[in-house]
Design a protein around this nucleic acid. Sequence first.
DNA 1: GGCGCTTTAGATCGACCGATCTAAACTGAG
DNA 2: CTCAGTTTAGATCGGTCGATCTAAAGCGCC
Lengths: 206, 206
Amino acid sequence: MRSNQRDDSPTFTERARRAQIVACAIEVIAEIGYAQTSIRKIARRVGVAMSVVLYHFANKDELVRAIAMAAYRSAVAAMVPALDAEATAAGRLRAYIRSHVAFISTHRTQFMAVLDIALSYRSATGHRLDQLEVDPGLHGDLAKLDLESLFRQGQEAGEFRPFDARSVAVALRGALNNAVLETARDPGFDVLAYGEELVVVFAAAT
Amino acid sequence: MRSNQRDDSPTFTERARRAQIVACAIEVIAEIGYAQTSIRKIARRVGVAMSVVLYHFANKDELVRAIAMAAYRSAVAAMVPALDAEATAAGRLRAYIRSHVAFISTHRTQFMAVLDIALSYRSATGHRLDQLEVDPGLHGDLAKLDLESLFRQGQEAGEFRPFDARSVAVALRGALNNAVLETARDPGFDVLAYGEELVVVFAAAT
DNA sequence: GGCGCTTTAGATCGACCGATCTAAACTGAG
DNA sequence: CTCAGTTTAGATCGGTCGATCTAAAGCGCC
């Protein structure tokens, strides 16, 4: 029976299974790619019937959302403290790049899976999604990771030259995401050294 | 009957159909994404039976290869002359960025389709492909578009500071590819202005 | 120890996939 | 006009997909 709390608290089994399914789904996506990943293959990896996965997640979209949520939570936990420790915009930019590549190197499969989802996912009408949906509680912390406003703050404080904030943000995000793809292509790629090059490049650029 | 040439010259119908199918495939991929694109949907867009597509292309892979070939050919035709007109490595870097973003803005759907393929495509074992296969005849010109060796040449000539050529190449490729994704997310994104920002950023960085 | 909720396996559904086959329609040279 | 080669439409194949349903098994509480 459920606990005597209000009826919204999940069972122990429920939470463990969901976490197990999410973990296995991340592995499968990182291995064979999101496009080739099916609920059947995830269930096979977990070692249960496919109906079990769809019992714990209403449909495929909800499973994908849970994967993204888990990744965002760990990324925020790794990066936000590093940014909060910096007083200047230039310092926060360095911390953003360094904590980002550090997260990539320590959470490789998780990041690859989420990036693959973000690049592959389309709505029913074929539109890409701007951002994977996350819990409302994460929005505040996610705002701290908005590069464009970080650049603007640095410009207002006179730390940065007056470049186009959006363009440089797009460029840096592209450079960071490409680090994940490069790691997928060549597992020996040194992501941390790459991050230090980015620190130099974007320090000179701003 | 076929022409009196040796038997490898395609019919007029053959070449026209292949070109038509490739063009429609690019449209479909750009609209709904490579993952959701099927031979059936391409055939529907062309207005023929699915078997017609598979009559002109042995299988899906050969069709994808033809799409990539067409895109590479037009990209090489647009970018290589711009690079050849420059005498210095710094000039070639500027020409690379400017001709690249110009190509993106003039061949948007084509570039989006090929990038989508490159990001989505996996081998049977799940590995990404490093590079889409192209005609041997294109390899020479494609080598001129290798950013890493461009950076190395500039360093040997003393034009560039001694940064890690591969890292900066990965960063620039990521920044340029992200321009295509940003355009997909926001059709109003000014790719040419973005390119000028990149010229400034990577001039300062090198 | 039996009851009720949770969780499971397995069968099944309709849909779409890439690929193949057959036969008909088309086309141009003789 | 005839006929061989080219190109087409349409049916069909085996397979995988996400989703649903049913019935049984598991399990904590009384």
